[in-house]
């Protein structure tokens, strides 16, 4: 653990670890700062710019993003000055025009008092992400930096940039793990489990085989994910081709019958 420091947010003093993200401290203490691109498990990325705060005492005074602001002793910030509200409003408006179909985004904007946008909706014909993507980059970062899979990445730059699989063709590395779906703050990524296949609709319909639970027969986990895990575990004699529900049941049964060690991880 690093050194403890005191930071002041909107006049209230909080204890924080030196260097940790100010946004984390605020969120932990119930101070609501809007954010789209921040996830605890990832390094701060600073792309959505919604988390802006005003530093009144610290390394560099003025408006900056709180996710990338490291806590130092004596840091003082304000989260709701008129200027921040003004800029945040414009940012939300830009988002609403960029991703007009995202309900989650609308809700977030409304929570901060922005109900409409002065900008024309972006032309998003045939968008695999349904006109919902806000380019926060969480899916790309999870797929590449956390999982090391690299099925998707940014394509193009600037205003035309998007996220998808290379050449917009079915990916042969996507494991269908759905981490991108889970992490997406605006529900932009579509998938569907059909029979023994998972279809990553947004990723050019990449298809991944699912495995069948050896107990109930339900398809539950993508084979590529399962494959690597099960190989490791089977070395320890652990049985894995069982869906979570059945596993719970089996564990319970095991415990009541033998009360001993169970081999169902």
């Amino acid at each position: 653990m690093g050194r403890r420091v005191k930071v002041t947010i909107d006049g209230k003093v909080f204890s924080a670890e030196e260097g940790e993200s100010l946004l984390a401290v605020a969120l932990r203490n119930g101070i609501d700062i809007p954010h789209l691109c921040y996830e605890e498990c990832l390094e701060p990325y600073g792309s959505c710019r919604l988390c802006i705060v005003e530093v009144v005492e610290g390394f560099k005074k003025g408006i900056t993003t709180s996710c990338t602001l490291g806590c130092v002793d004596g840091l003082k910030v304000l989260t709701n000055t008129p200027e921040i509200e003004k800029h945040r409003k414009v940012l939300f408006e830009l988002y609403l025009a960029q991703a007009p179909n995202s309900e989650k985004l609308k809700k977030l904007a409304e929570k901060f008092g922005v109900y409409s946008t002065r900008f024309k909706e972006k032309n998003l014909k045939n968008d695999p992400l349904n006109g919902k993507c806000v380019m926060c980059g969480l899916c790309v970062r999870v797929c590449n930096d956390v999982l090391g899979v690299g099925a998707i990445n940014f394509i193009g730059r600037g205003y035309r940039a998007t996220v998808n699989v290379p050449y917009f063709e079915e990916s042969d590395v996507c494991k269908g793990c759905k981490a991108c779906v889970e992490v997406c703050p605006v529900d932009a990524i579509d998938y569907s489990d059909v029979g023994d296949k998972r279809v990553m609709i947004s990723w050019s319909n990449t298809k991944v085989d699912l495995i069948k639970c050896s107990v109930c027969g339900r398809y539950f986990s993508p084979l590529p994910v399962f494959g690597s895990v099960s190989k490791k575990l089977s070395e320890y004699g652990v049985v894995c081709d069982v869906c979570p529900d059945c596993r719970k049941r089996l564990i319970a049964k095991n415990m009541t019958s033998s009360g001993g060690y169970n081999s169902y991880a």
Binding site: R157, R160, A161
Partner: peptide, 21 residues
């Protein structure tokens, strides 16, 4: 600048384009 924006952050990616429009 619209052409050369990397596309990472929203003000530069979307805001500049709106200014250009």
């Amino acid at each position: 600048t619209v052409d050369e924006s990397c596309g990472k952050c929203v003000p530069c990616r979307e805001g500049l384009k709106r200014m250009l429009d």
